[in-house]
């Protein structure tokens, strides 16, 4: 094997280990009973693997403190927020780039500003707004907040993609008798599937992993899983149950990993399409 190859593999293996090692340690710890964790060393493999910690993380102890119903909360927040922000963002991006709207550039600039202001800055006015709408502490309130935050980014993504679509295509569709929505549905939507994959993955990850908005806008009943995880890990009496913490963390991370795995190919194609055409 030529030495360049050796160097290359060495680098790749090192990088992979650096990423995988913590995950392996987490998985291994989550399968150990507490006694083994107390005595043994962190890197040792479990002697008597058990799923008890996973069960505790999911169901809680004595019927409370589990992540199960918070998972549902998260899905009820993420899925509507995802559908609405990607759907609306796609249409907005299409309108901004392919239809000659009055002040389109001004609107676009406003959206960009929305993208660059960190959420912390507008947190307080946002709280007031959601409270006035009577949605504070509810799942619909969280959906609204996430849609508003996601829209600017998704719109930017789609606008940049549609900007690369030849304007003649829209003209041809108009002559064929397709209006605003028909052109979007029949011509533009099929064209933008890779960008859709990117938008879905990024929005899903972002909304699912969100902690700040979930913490601020939720109540006990509408808590997303990230907030619940924090409570589980941070506020325990007595001994830290490392195995339960690790199992809970991995459970919370699982959905985003699955989304990447299932749409990873489309995702890469979407990024590549953006790179070539943008």
């Amino acid at each position: 094997m030529p030495y360049q190859r050796v160097v290359l593999y060495l680098l790749l293996v090192t990088a992979a280990l650096a990423v995988l090692a913590p995950i392996l340690i987490m998985a291994s710890t989550s399968l150990k009973p507490m006694a083994e964790i107390r005595d043994g060393n962190l890197f040792a493999l479990p002697q008597a693997p058990t799923l008890e910690a996973w069960s505790t993380a999911w169901h809680g102890r004595g019927g409370s403190g589990g992540l199960a119903d918070k998972f549902l909360n998260s899905f009820f927040i993420v899925i509507p927020a995802l559908v609405l922000s990607v759907g609306l963002g796609a249409i907005t991006g299409y309108a901004l780039s392919l239809w000659r709207l009055r002040h389109a550039n001004l609107l676009f600039a406003a959206l960009l500003i929305g993208l660059f202001i960190p959420p912390q800055v507008t947190l307080y006015p946002m709280i007031l707004l959601v409270r006035e709408l009577g949605l504070f502490g509810t799942v619909p309130g969280l959906v609204l907040v996430h849609v508003v935050w996601g829209l600017a980014f998704v719109t930017l993504l789609f606008r940049n993609f549609f900007q690369s679509v030849p304007a003649d295509l829209v003209k041809a569709a108009r002559i064929d008798g397709a209006g605003f929505l028909a052109t979007f549905w029949y011509v533009m939507l099929p064209l933008s599937l890779p960008v859709f994959a990117v938008a879905v993955i990024l929005q899903f990850t972002y909304t699912w992993n969100d902690f700040l908005l979930g913490l601020t806008f939720s109540s006990r009943d509408s808590q997303p899983v990230t907030v619940a995880l924090n409570n589980l890990v941070a506020s325990q009496f007595g001994e830290q149950e490392y195995n339960v913490n690790m199992a809970a963390t991995m459970l919370v991370a699982l959905p985003t990993v699955l989304v990447y795995l299932f749409s990873g190919r489309l995702f890469v194609r979407g990024i590549a399409a953006g790179a070539v055409k943008g």
Binding site: P166, K171, R174, I175, P190
Partner: peptide, 20 residues
């Protein structure tokens, strides 16, 4: 609107719908 004018147009770029 264009579709009400009883015209059809052929473009320099052809403007065929790529996904159809």
């Amino acid at each position: 609107d264009p579709d009400a004018r009883d015209i059809a147009m052929v473009f320099q770029s052809y403007a065929l719908y790529p996904t159809m």
